[in-house]
Design a binder for these strands. Structure first.
Length: 743
DNA sequence: TTTGCCGTCCTTTTT
DNA sequence: GGACGGCAAA
């Protein structure tokens, strides 16, 4: 008996398909991996196997889409071969790092700022104004989307302008142009620029390209179905000399088309690399039979899809549950109840996840969990870094690192309030524009701007403050942050807030302790690197299964994770599939894939729920169950009515068709929409109202119910109804409207 | 310059 | 139900 070699050890417990992928050495490799087919295992074992055979760890580059996935992969590779020098990171952080490293070769400032979405929107608003357009007609959010699309297709402002053939695109080209100028003058890059600049560098700077090709000789790209054009080019060019590229993915889990991901990258891999080896992993080791066949039945409805056999040897398990609840609060209570039961039966909260299509659905769940004392963890990393106080503090750091970052400078110029208002800022900007002097520089010499008057002193003090901050040692970051809080006076500012809710200071403390963690993890790190990391965090990154709490996240954030028990809420038409995506078949199919991704996260139990009424944005509406539910194979699920008061006649009565019909007649009858708050204030017992669904009615009684107003209304046709927030749906009856609002 | 109130508008997902 | 802009008053 000989001891197994390290290589053999790595191949134990792998199926033959998995083994093929792991042991494939040189040349292109495509791994088409269905959900739960052991993909991560294959990637990590493959990296370990390469290292165990001939390859130097530092010659391997593995790219993922989230830092969380990268961290997880790094961890699992380290378990197999010990911590090593393999580069495992996201596309964006790789680019940020390399652009900084090669800044000199690329005529780029190494201390560039990275604009997040909020910064981008601010800059875009300014760009829109500069292009003599009204941000009201050219909403930055929409423009942002369009420019981002253009960038991910590698179109700069000039290329975009060239192909712009209608009025709208021509105007957009103008905004795009201005926007790039703003980025330039701020020494800033947005998310897409990180990729775009890297593509430029790889294409136009042979010395950079060849150095990188020598550095990274084996390339792995995970979730390849989510790559966009820019990422595709980066991967392709990096492996041009050696073709050692291994990509893994699943076209059925492509859910980022809206962000420019191009599913044809994975579908055309064989065309791009004719000698590619293809490995299919279709056996599922994760889910029970019923869960898998329900998911399979759903995804089969996608017509723009290559057929794939999903199968498992796992036991069929319990049926998928489709639960109907009266409203979203009942839905949340139902789930809380099920979780409580699960825990009482000896289960652990960390086994459980709740998924939703939109973040706003999380609130009702949170409330229910809090009152049921169920520990939960919301996966919303961005939200933390998007908080005002966090952004303010980080803006200070950004100004220290990059004095050109005018956007950050203007953000903090009056935070905390130091009597530098909009007028002063305007004067500064004007002066800066006409004289070509950066704002940062103008601060020190305000006497040159006669229009400033008494704000000059404040400006000078602010300039001194910035100088002081720049003099503080930049590492460790924790100390810098503490010093910053003190010098700026932000600490006392937030401490004063404490009485009403201490959250601002709590968040700052959380930031400081995460900075301390950073200092510990990156003894070599500098402030620039710290800022880069904080700019590129995302939702899932914050997920920590060790906390023993129920995980709550959007369906998008759920990809790549698995849980024994999964709840999916809001299976309603308009939510999943989302109403914004019903226009195109392609996007309906993406919604279906999203649903598929959610379902296939579940190992043992899957509960999908919908509410008959749902309050969204303050309005209660009748819902229609998601069409996706009807696509589940009948033998794989059971339908459950939670709580009572459900009869199908009632349901039929309020199908979408009648609902629309009633709404239309209501619209004809009512001449003018009344402002909600103005009308609600006039609600008194005895007044007659019109409800778009129930028709004409008379208010019987108005009472307070907690912080809500509760109204009992007797409708001519539908009889008496109790309404809480739904009274917001009410309108004045037609005759009353004409009386009170003559026109 | 700041504050607070009002009305309007928007509502997906995120590196 | 919340973010934001506009406006008036402190």
């Amino acid at each position: 008996m000989t001891r197994p070699t390290p290589q053999q050890h790595l191949l134990e417990n792998l199926t033959s398909a998995q083994r093929t992928a792991v042991t494939h050495c040189d040349g292109p490799l495509l791994v088409l991996a269905g959900p739960g087919s052991g993909k991560t295992r294959v990637i990590t074992h493959r990296i370990a196997y390469l290292i165990a055979t001939t390859v130097q760890p530092e010659h391997i580059l593995a790219l993922t889409f989230t830092n969380k996935a990268a961290g997880e992969m790094r961890h699992r590779v380290a378990e197999l071969v010990g911590p090593g020098r393999t580069t495992i990171c996201t596309f964006h952080s790789l680019c940020a790092r390399l652009l900084r490293e090669f800044a000199a070769d690329l005529a780029l400032a190494p201390n560039f700022s990275i604009f997040d979405r909020a910064d981008t929107l601010t800059a875009l608003k300014e760009a829109t104004r500069q292009a003599d357009l009204d941000p009201k007609n050219w909403p930055p959010a929409v423009t942002c989307e369009k420019i981002s699309r253009a960038k991910s297709k590698l179109q700069g402002p000039a290329e975009y302008q060239e192909q712009a053939d209608d009025f709208q695109s021509k105007q957009l080209a103008k905004i795009y142009h201005r926007y790039q100028q703003i980025l330039q003058s701020n020494s800033a890059l947005d998310f897409d620029d990180l990729l775009l600049r890297m593509v430029d560098a790889l294409r136009n700077n042979e010395s950079v390209r060849s150095r990188l090709a020598r550095r990274y000789r084996y390339l792995l790209v995970d979730e390849y179905q989510d790559t966009n054009q820019a990422q595709y080019v980066i991967a392709r060019v990096l492996c041009r000399d050696h073709n050692n590229i291994c990509v893994t993915g699943d076209p059925d889990q492509s859910i980022y088309g809206w962000r420019g991901a191009d599913i044809s990258n994975i579908l055309d891999f064989e065309r791009d690399f004719p000698q590619a080896r293809i490995v299919r992993l279709e056996q599922n080791y994760r889910s029970t039979g019923h869960i898998l066949s329900a998911a399979d039945g759903l995804i089969r409805n996608n017509s723009l899809r290559k057929h794939k056999d999903l199968w498992t040897q796992n036991p069929v398990g319990q049926l998928v549950e489709v639960v109907c609840c009266p409203d979203e609060r009942a839905e949340a209570r139902y789930i809380a109840g099920r979780i409580a039961q699960y825990v009482e039966d000896g289960g652990s909260c960390k086994d459980i996840a709740v998924f939703y299509r939109v973040n706003s659905l999380s609130r009702t769940l949170e409330q229910a969990f809090r009152s049921a004392v169920i520990p939960y963890q919301m996966i919303r990393g961005v939200a933390f870094y998007a908080r005002r106080e966090i952004k303010d503090v980080l803006a200070y750091l950004r100004v220290i690192v990059n004095p050109d970052d005018e956007l950050s400078l203007l953000r903090i110029i009056n935070v905390p309030a130091r009597k530098i208002g909009a007028k002063t800022v305007k004067a500064l900007q004007d002066r800066s524009r006409t004289s070509g002097t950066p704002v940062r520089q103008l601060l020190a010499e305000p006497d040159n701007i006669p229009s400033l008057g008494r704000a000059a002193g404040s400006l000078q003090k602010f300039a001194v403050l910035l100088d002081e901050l720049s003099a503080v040692p930049q590492s460790p970051v924790k100390n810098l942050l503490e010093r910053l809080m003190h010098l700026t006076g932000l600490d006392s500012e937030y401490a004063a807030d404490r009485h009403e809710d201490g959250t601002a200071m709590d968040n700052i403390n959380e930031l400081i302790s995460s900075a301390a963690q950073y200092d510990q993890d990156n003894p070599q790190g500098d402030l620039e690197d710290y800022l880069q990391q904080t700019s590129l965090v995302c939702d899932v990154d914050a997920f920590d299964p060790a906390q023993g709490a129920v995980a709550m996240m959007t369906l998008h954030a759920a990809k790549g994770l698995e849980f024994p028990v999964v709840f999916m809420v809001g299976l309603e038409d308009g939510l999943l599939p989302h109403s914004r995506s019903v226009d195109y078949i392609a996007s309906i199919e993406e919604e279906r894939r999203l649903c598929f991704v959610g379902m296939t996260r579940a190992k043992r139990n899957l509960v999908m729920s919908y509410a008959r009424y749902r309050t969204l944005r303050g309005l209660t509406n009748r819902t229609v169950p998601s069409g996706f539910l009807a696509e589940l194979p009948a033998e794989s699920f059971q339908h459950i009515q939670s709580d009572v008061s459900f009869d199908s006649e009632f349901l039929d009565k309020f199908t979408k068709a009648t609902d629309t019909a009633v709404r239309q007649s209501a619209r004809q009858g009512s001449t003018r929409r009344v402002s909600r708050s103005a009308f609600v204030a006039q609600l008194v017992a005895g007044s007659s109202v019109y409800h778009p669904r129930f028709g004409l009615g008379k208010i019987e009684q108005i009472s307070k119910f907690g912080k809500f107003t509760r109204a009992v209304i007797d409708f001519e046709q539908a009889g008496p109804q109790t309404m809480m927030r739904e009274y917001a749906n009410l309108q004045k009856s037609p005759e009353q409207q004409s009386q009170q609002f003559p026109r």
